[in-house]
Design a protein around this nucleic acid. Structure first.
Lengths: 333, 333
DNA sequence: CTGAAAGCGCTAACAA
DNA sequence: TTGTTAGCGCTTTCAG
């Protein structure tokens, strides 16, 4: 069923039909005629043909590193809520942590197919930058800061600083750190710097053998905690870059009779569901992931309306959720 | 840059260019000419115009109830892996648990835009069935069985039966159940039936006041556990329909000095990450969510090649993961 | 194997 | 307000 056939059935011209679907001039009787015919035939215009004319796809490309990560999923949740309300649909690309697929996806999106792109970024290479510069459609980056581009990010440094300070103020004197790769400027570099600054600002020593770099999962946290806690000097608190790492570390402690928080305090960033269910419950920084997704979508919508080429950085602050792993007796929620 | 301009630059005809991108007859010298021009210009054909001609979008619609649910995310992960390898992209619709949006999305997909649909279903209404019947593109349903349609689902009944039996065989005599709405034929009805059958088959009494219906989250599990454990007769094991519910119940127990598993055993279905981090760790049934996503994608790909109209049901079995909450001393992984 | 030409289903400029 | 008409960028006959 195409527009001509349908127009014949409805008893109007093709243009009238087109106008009906595009908010053009139309008298009420024609409108009624068309509505009746739609009810009868179920006709709906081909979005492909439409796009090929006016170059509007009503599609937004979303590139993510790993869907089955809680934080990613929350961001996409927020994006889909806002964009859905504006009649946009999401073209989702899951790179499965393969950095090079971000490039190929961006290139795929560059030529056509989407009106805009939201990129949940982890690590930027020079290639990323050059491809991003060539994009013809607006792009919003989530989770990282990149000068000259629209970004929505979190206060990684601040959260790490606040959490570490909290543990020191509660009496910790030998703070340790389990982080992730410094190539990740947000979760890796900024959180590490926040930790280090807090240690220094409180006049404590920064022991290099109290710094570990883990992968993003529990097993790796477990392993690094073992390494950290097997030396002759034992730390009395650990700040972990992610909840999974912290949970792995807590499991190691439990297995080895090290009491949390009595012998060692542990906390991290992310506020994943796991941290509420664990025992002890986990002190963590809540990042407003869903909100950042919503705000990124709003930023993109703005660009779609009138793109002024000015890069905007929006940084969302964190909430500290104090729970048992740093000594709060009991205050879940 | 359109095909005509590009053809001029490459020094070939438009048809040659079209053939290059569509595996038509083409001499090697022309092919080379075109490849050089692509390297220079970065030209790529407009997928919209292409679609409007040959009606192939290379897009698959994926409808999900809630992205930020671990099981959903794992299924989509599997889908995207398989479909991505075949050059398909995902058009993702997040219904946010709004059942009616499944209908509108299906209708949106019905007319055009996608080559096929994968539906992560929860509850089927008669409207669902009638819309599904009218679809012109192939549809694969994940997580539910629906006669006459292609489905990939899990053995909900079997997992509930096995888990309940396990607790009874370990000595439980007063089994209780916290489930979810029976409108959900898989997570609601089948798991409840599996529980009930196991209780009966072991010659135990099925007490109606030992049956609770919760929402899908921890708080609700907590609340229902309280109700269950406040009566004058106390159950000695609880089978929960989901991990979140079980974790909520475990938290209630911890808060009230009820020991798990000594006083009461608890287990559930889902094998979410939380169950590994909790204390005690949670006995659960692992459903192969990612695999079911992959298999659904393969089924759809098959339909896309030659649709024979025969409904196929693929049911994946579960793995029982025994952990501390039902009395295993210590054997995480 | 190749190019010219017709046409996919739709939108938009135009004259009425 | 309306219908006619000329495209959008591409694919696909159809001769050659």
């Amino acid at each position: 069923m195409n527009i001509s056939e349908f127009a014949k059935i409805a008893g109007v011209s093709r243009s009238a039909v087109s106008r009906y679907f595009n908010d053009g001039y139309l008298s009420d009787d024609k409108r009624e005629l068309i509505e009746k015919a739609i009810a009868k035939t179920g006709y709906s215009p081909s979005s492909a043909a439409r796009t090929s004319k006016n170059r509007i796809t009503k599609l937004v490309g979303v590139i993510i590193p790993k869907l089955s990560s809680e934080s990613c999923a929350r961001v996409v949740d927020g994006i889909s809520e806002v964009l859905g309300n504006e009649g946009y649909e999401l073209l989702l690309v899951n790179t499965a942590n393969d950095n090079s697929r971000e490039i190929t996806s961006l290139e795929l999106f560059r030529s056509n197919r989407v009106d805009g792109v939201i990129l949940l970024a982890t690590i930027f290479t020079p290639l990323h930058i050059s491809v991003l510069k060539k994009m013809r459609v607006p792009v919003v980056i989530v989770g990282q800061e990149l000068n000259g581009f629209d970004c929505v990010c979190h206060n990684d440094y601040g959260a790490a600083y606040a959490l570490t300070s909290k543990m020191i103020e509660k009496g910790a004197e030998k703070p340790a750190f389990i982080g992730v790769t410094l190539s990740d400027a947000a979760a890796g570099k900024a959180r590490r710097e926040g930790f280090e600054a807090a240690v220094k600002d409180h006049g404590l020593e920064l022991r290099t053998n109290f710094i570990e770099t883990a992968k993003f999962d529990m097993d790796s946290g477990h392993e690094k905690a073992k390494h950290l806690l097997s030396g002759n000097v034992r730390p009395d608190c650990i700040f972990c870059a992610t909840d999974s790492i912290a949970l792995g570390a807590m499991i190691y402690c439990r297995e080895n009779g090290i009491r949390v928080p009595e012998d060692i305090m542990i906390c991290s960033v992310g506020d994943s569901k796991m941290g509420r269910a664990s025992s002890p419950t986990l002190t963590t920084a809540h990042f407003h992931y869903k909100t950042s997704g919503m705000n990124a979508a709003e930023m993109l919508l703005r660009d779609l309306k009138h793109r002024d080429g000015i890069g905007r950085l929006l940084r969302l602050d964190y909430d500290i959720i104090e729970r048992e792993s740093t000594g709060i007796v009991k205050s879940d929620d």
